[in-house]
Each structure stands twice: as structure tokens, then as C-alpha cells.
Nucleic acid binder design. Structure first.
Length: 697
DNA sequence: TTCCCGCGGATTTTT
DNA sequence: TCCGCGGGAA
């Protein structure tokens, strides 16, 4: 047998062999921590004979979980089944489905996304007549979310924290929202964690059961866990003491979601004082220049221990490049051209490049420019797949049939089926009945007009069909039939527009996904499929085989690596973001920048745009402090970072006068005037902002 | 019930 | 600039 354990360095080996008792691995960026976890699991299973189903491994994305599993399988040379591996949310969903009745939940509960939540909050506002006083649903949802992430129930908030009148109203709203979730047989993302903690707290026997079950617990990205997550991990591994936490405080970037790095740095050692601590500070990913640049940025955080990664990997040349763009289009063109050039001259392919930005909205320009230059790309995030209207409509169909209590899904179905509008719904719920039952009652009393009657009959026949066929057909087949019988695909197809066509494609993609999942988990039920879907992210959908440039936010890039990284939009206000102005928030922006830089194996490009279109008007920007802090000598040969003359000598293409060369530049920003020599018409003065020109090089 | 128009707000980051 | 929502009219 080939001894795969020999591939590890000293600290890594130590981390793998130290299987019993609490273990804290402080692992810097690129130090091979994911590898260590995979080897550790493989070691437990193969050399220590630990059954896979007594291992719990928590990763940051479902995709990471899938990859981890594959990695373990390839190490031990056979497939493994039954291991608990996934995100906190998916693991909790699995636990809650098993133990549902102990919390008076139904095992087929649905998981609501933010959009659904906000609709429910709106409803709660309406019901309590608090529409105008409390604020917008989005903000309220965030407040509720942060309470849940601090394990505060509506009752607790009401009795011990709400002091003002408006806080009391808010508490009632929170309570009402929970009630509506329950009526809809649904949980939101935060409930998955919160309810799991509650389950363990109110039912010691169940807790003991899981404590006995999970002999080994491993948690990746421990710096980004929040209170309920820490509580779950702590409770579950309290007996076995075999908890392995892996994290890096420099990469804590989710505090806005309730994550607190102190769980890694303080609580772990306090709650598990016998813990062994291993530090992994050797970086295998990048050369020293990239690490030095990252260190320039991170060393200025106001809080945090001093630490420095080291690497013996030689720098690739040049390791760092800086570019000052005229505007966001120029920035995108530079990125596009540079990618084309490196592909050609350095023998690279599209998938060696990642374009990172602070906010999703920045992806748009890159998409447009890449599209026009035929550069294949994949965008991660933004409008998530399952948040698209057609996907939600299609899913609602299945969700309602699985769970007719779900009013939100019924409403969605009614919205495209037609025939039943607000007034009919109003009438149906007048007597206090749930919407669906109210409609049935109206039907019985003959109180429905013809279109409404037809719509209802259609839904009833679908329910009938679903009930009869559920057991006989596989999930995908059933789903496909439902989509056809309900007329949903036809609803779009009949519109004939390009957009409608696209929507049909997306629905088909959904069917593909269902088939894929069914292959992976034979006998997959509708409930399980829905659960997967709501916890499914764009990152999980990422196709690594596809040769395409990746576009994503810095947050999404956590845990990934690329030969070439473009860190874009390095402007004050964009990155660091203007909403993160307090010292703690700025620290987090810094860590975010550190994460971005340390993604790169060979080279980082730092780009910024002097002017940016923001909400439809042009604003002038200043270079980001993060870029300014990286000393000049890190960029030998790169043009100076400020100065107006960068346009001089460049070739431009004018829509009427053809190609010309910039001779002089006056002013800056919006007022920039350039003098260009055109062979066709001679020297011309142009206001840069208005001139119909493209910069060619 | 549905369609169309006008207005206001949006952009932080994600499970 | 773009999107979603609410109001009003057919």
C-alpha cells in the first residue's frame, strides 16, 4: 500500500495523528488546512477503523463538503457512505428532520430564503397594523436575523430587552413572524441553527444521543462561526472531546452575520482547556512578494495578534501589477486584454484567472466587456439560481404539493396561473381560514367565478395526480410531469420572447439538477430535494471543469485559489466600502483584502478606476488606502499611481475621425480635456467625458 | 383581474 | 440607471 501519509510536512502530520482530544489548528492562508482535514478523516477511517457515520465534518460550502468527501475517497481508495459532512445549515436541517416532532415541527418543513422571509414579514406587519411605523421588511429581517444569531427568542426579547414602545412593537412583529413561519411549516436560515440549539437544550436525551453518535467532530473556517454554531459544536463534542477546529483569525470576514473570531481565539481554549494547539504558518500557495503585499495590508489592523506567513516558493514575474483605469469600462478592458495577453504569451487558459470585487454589482461591466470580446466566464453569486423567478415558481409547485400549508407557495402558483387575484384571496381568508381551505370552502359554496373556479380545479387535479404518482415515479420524472400538467412551461413558451426562452432554459436546468441529485442520492424525496435546493449556492454550482474566467466577490473567493487574481475596484468607498467606516468594520475590510490577495498563486493585479458610474452618475474616486499602503517598490516598472499624464501617448479610436494619438491632457476627472492628433482631421481638443472615443492601448 | 405607468430607492458581503 | 411596487384605469 502506498503510504499517502508521507505527503505531509511535520505540523500537518502532527495535526492528522492527533485524533483524540480537542485540537486547535491555527492555519494561515495557503498552508494546506483543507488537505489536513481530508487526511485526518481518511486516517480515522482507514487506520483507526472509525465508522464514517460517527464523523461529523462541517465545511463552509456544500461544494467544499463534496470535494472533501471525494478527496477522502481517493486517499483510501474506496467510496464512503454515511459520513455527516456539510455546512452547518445542511447538517442542522438533517438533524431537525430526524427530530422534528420534539420541537413540534413537521419533518417535511420547508426552508425559506430571504425573499420569502421578507414577504412573511410584510404579512406580519399587515396583520399587526405596523406597516408604517417599524420600517422596511429588509431591515426588519436583518434585525430578526441578528437576534436569532445571538440566540434570542421573541419572548426573551420582549421580556428583558425591549424597553421602548417601538422595540416592543418590533418584538411582537418578531413573534408574529415566527408564528407565520410555523403556520407555513417553514424555517428560515437562522432557524435551522437556532432550533438545533433549542433542541439540544430542551431535550437532554436527544443531545446525549448525538453526543454518543458523533465520535469525531471537525470544523473548518472556525474563525467565521457564530454563537449558535459554536454552541452546537460545543454541545455535540462535549462528551467525546474529539473536536478539531481549524481556522485563521486573519481571515475572519463574516462578523456582520454574527460570526465572532473569539470563538476561535478565546472560547475554544476556555471550554476545552486540555486542547492541543498546532500552528501552520508555512504557505505553499504564493511567493514571498504576494505574501509581503498581503502582510502590508493586514499588519495595520488595530486588533489581532502579530503573525507572518512564510514561503519558499519562488516569485513568478511579475508577482504584483498595478493599473489605474480611467473608469470602470477601462478597468474591465484592461483586465480582459491582460487575460488575453497572458493566455497567449504565458501559455495559460481562461480558468487560471479570477476577477474579484467587493460588491456583486461590479460584475456587470466585466460581463459586458468579456462578452463582447468572447472571453468565456462564469459569474458566482449575484442573483442566485434558486432566487430567479421561474425557478421559484417551479419550486413552489413542488413545495405546495409536498406541503399544502405553505401559503407563500400557493400564492406564487396563483400569481401565474391567473383567475384568482387579491379580491378572491381576501374573500377566502375573511373567515380566518387558511388561504387554501378558504378557497376550497368558497368553491363548495359556489362562491367562485368561472376563471377562479377553473384555476382551483387545475390545482386540485395536480394535487390528485401528485398524490397518486408520488410513490410510483422518481423525483425528476414526477417534477417534469407536474411542470407539464400545470402548464407552467407553456406559460412561458407561449410568450415567445427571448427572455421567456431563457426562463424555460432555467427551469430545464432545474430538472437537470434534480436528476443529478437523484443520481447521487437514489430514492431522493421531494422534501429532500427542496431542502438541498434552498441550501444550494452558486458556489456549489461552480463548474471547475469549464474553462472560463471566474468572476466573484472576495467573500465568495474564501477558501479558493487561482494562478492569477485581479483585485478590482480598489477605491475608497468601494473597497473599503463606505458602509464599513468604523474601526472594527475597517479591520474586517482589511482582512477581506488580505483574503483576496492570498488567493493568488502567481500574480495579483490591483486595479482601480478614477471615475465610476454610480447610480447613473459619475463620481470621482480616490485610490484605496489598501493599495496606497503597498509600497512603491513592490511594483517595479508599474506607472506611478497618481498623475494625469497616463493617457498621453495612448492611441484612441474616435467614432467619426478614426484612430488618433493623445498629445496632451488637461485637468482631471470629469473635467479632463484631451488633445488628440488625428491623421484625418488634425489636432482636436476633446472633453474626455463626452468624446465618443475608445482608448486602444 | 390585469396591465401599464410613474415613482422611489438601490449597492455591502452569504448560509 | 434599473427594478419593483403601488395605484389607477380598462
Amino acid at each position: 500500500m502506498v503510504d499517502w501519509l508521507e505527503d505531509l510536512n511535520q505540523e500537518q502530520k502532527e495535526a492528522v495523528f492527533q485524533t483524540d482530544g480537542p485540537l486547535l489548528i491555527l492555519a494561515g492562508a495557503g498552508s494546506g488546512k483543507t488537505r489536513v482535514i481530508a487526511y485526518r478523516i481518511a486516517y480515522l477511517i482507514q487506520r483507526r477503523g472509525v465508522p464514517p457515520n460517527s464523523i461529523l465534518a462541517v465545511t463552509f460550502t456544500n461544494k467544499a463538503a463534496g470535494e472533501m468527501k471525494q478527496r477522502v475517497e481517493s486517499l483510501i481508495g474506496k467510496s464512503i457512505t454515511g459520513m455527516w459532512i456539510g455546512t452547518f445549515h445542511s447538517v442542522c436541517a438533517r438533524i431537525l428532520r430526524i427530530e422534528a416532532e420534539k420541537l413540534n415541527l413537521k419533518p417535511n418543513f420547508l426552508i425559506m430564503d430571504e425573499n420569502d422571509s421578507e414577504h412573511l414579514i410584510k404579512e406580519a406587519q399587515k396583520a399587526l397594523d405596523l406597516r408604517t411605523t417599524l420600517g422596511k421588511p429588509a431591515g426588519l429581517r436583518e434585525r430578526i436575523s441578528s437576534l436569532k444569531n445571538n440566540l434570542i427568542s421573541p419572548q426573551e426579547y420582549l421580556s428583558s430587552m425591549a424597553s421602548s414602545q417601538s422595540e416592543r412593537s418590533f418584538a411582537l412583529l418578531y413573534e408574529k413572524y415566527q408564528e407565520l413561519l410555523r403556520v407555513n411549516n417553514a424555517l428560515d436560515f437562522d432557524d435551522l441553527l437556532f432550533f438545533t440549539v433549542q433542541l439540544f437544550r430542551i431535550d437532554p436525551l436527544t443531545l446525549e444521543k448525538f453526543q454518543g453518535h458523533f465520535k469525531y467532530v471537525m470544523v473548518d473556517e472556525f474563525q467565521d462561526i457564530n454563537s449558535p454554531q459554536y454552541e452546537i459544536v460545543k454541545l455535540v463534542s462535549w462528551k467525546s472531546r474529539n473536536l478539531c477546529a481549524v481556522g485563521d483569525d486573519y481571515q475572519a470576514i463574516y462578523s456582520w452575520r454574527g460570526a465572532d473570531v473569539r470563538y476561535l481565539l478565546e472560547n475554544f481554549e476556555r471550554d476545552f482547556p486540555e486542547a492541543k494547539i498546532i500552528r501552520m504558518e508555512r504557505n505553499y500557495r504564493s511567493g514571498p512578494a504576494i505574501l509581503d503585499a498581503a502582510n502590508e495590508v493586514i499588519s495595520r489592523i488595530t486588533r489581532g495578534k502579530e503573525k507572518r506567513l512564510w514561503s519558499t516558493k519562488p516569485d513568478q514575474h511579475p508577482p504584483l501589477v498595478r493599473y489605474q483605469a480611467q473608469d470602470q469600462i477601462d478597468e474591465a478592458r484592461f483586465v480582459a486584454k491582460e487575460i488575453e495577453r497572458v493566455c497567449l504569451e504565458e501559455g495559460r487558459t481562461w480558468k487560471d484567472f479570477a476577477v474579484l470585487y467587493r460588491t456583486n454589482s461590479q460584475s456587470r461591466v466585466f460581463e459586458e466587456v468579456f462578452m463582447s470580446r468572447r472571453i468565456p466566464f462564469q459569474v458566482v453569486g449575484g442573483l442566485r439560481f434558486y432566487e430567479r423567478r421561474e425557478v421559484k415558481d417551479a419550486v413552489s409547485l413542488l413545495a405546495f404539493l409536498v406541503n399544502p400549508l405553505s401559503e407563500a407557495h400557493l400564492r406564487r402558483i396563483l400569481s401565474w396561473i391567473g383567475g384568482i387575484g387579491p379580491s378572491t384571496m381576501e374573500k377566502a381568508t375573511e373567515s380566518g381560514l387558511p388561504l387554501w381551505e378558504g378557497l376550497l370552502q368558497l368553491e363548495e359554496l359556489g362562491g367562485l367565478k368561472k376563471p377562479a373556479h377553473q384555476a382551483l380545479q387545475k390545482i386540485l387535479s395536480l394535487i390528485e395526480y401528485f398524490r397518486n404518482e408520488k410513490e410510483k415515479q422518481g423525483l425528476t420524472e414526477l417534477f417534469r410531469n407536474l411542470l407539464e400538467r400545470s402548464g407552467y412551461l407553456e406559460f412561458w413558451q407561449s410568450q415567445g420572447t427571448l427572455e421567456a426562452q431563457n426562463r424555460v432554459e432555467n427551469v430545464k436546468e432545474l430538472l437537470n439538477l434534480s436528476r443529478q441529485l437523484e443520481e447521487e442520492y437514489p430514492g431522493l424525496s421531494s422534501e429532500e430535494f427542496l431542502s438541498h435546493l434552498s441550501l444550494y449556492t452558486d458556489l456549489d454550482a461552480l463548474d471547475e471543469e469549464k474553462d472560463a474566467v471566474l468572476l466573484m466577490t472576495v467573500h465568495s473567493a474564501k477558501g479558493l485559489e487561482f494562478p492569477f487574481v485581479f483585485l478590482t475596484g480598489l477605491e475608497e468607498g468601494v473597497f473599503p466600502h463606505w458602509r464599513s467606516a468604523s474601526p472594527t468594520e475597517l479591520d474586517e475590510e482589511r482582512r477581506l483584502c488580505y483574503v483576496a490577495i492570498t488567493r493568488a498563486q502567481n500574480r495579483v493585479y490591483f486595479t482601480w478606476a478614477r471615475n465610476r458610474l454610480y447610480f447613473g452618475n459619475w463620481v470621482q474616486s480616490e485610490v484605496s488606502r489598501f493599495l496606497r499602503e503597498i509600497p512603491e517598490e513592490f511594483f517595479p516598472g508599474s506607472p506611478p499611481i497618481s498623475g494625469e499624464e497616463y493617457l498621453e501617448g495612448k492611441r484612441v479610436l474616435h467614432s467619426a475621425w478614426g484612430e488618433g494619438v493623445v498629445k496632451e491632457v488637461e485637468g482631471s476627472g470629469e473635467d479632463t480635456i484631451i488633445e488628440v492628433f488625428f491623421p484625418t482631421v488634425g489636432r482636436k481638443r476633446l472633453i474626455l467625458k463626452y468624446a465618443p472615443i475608445t482608448i486602444l492601448d
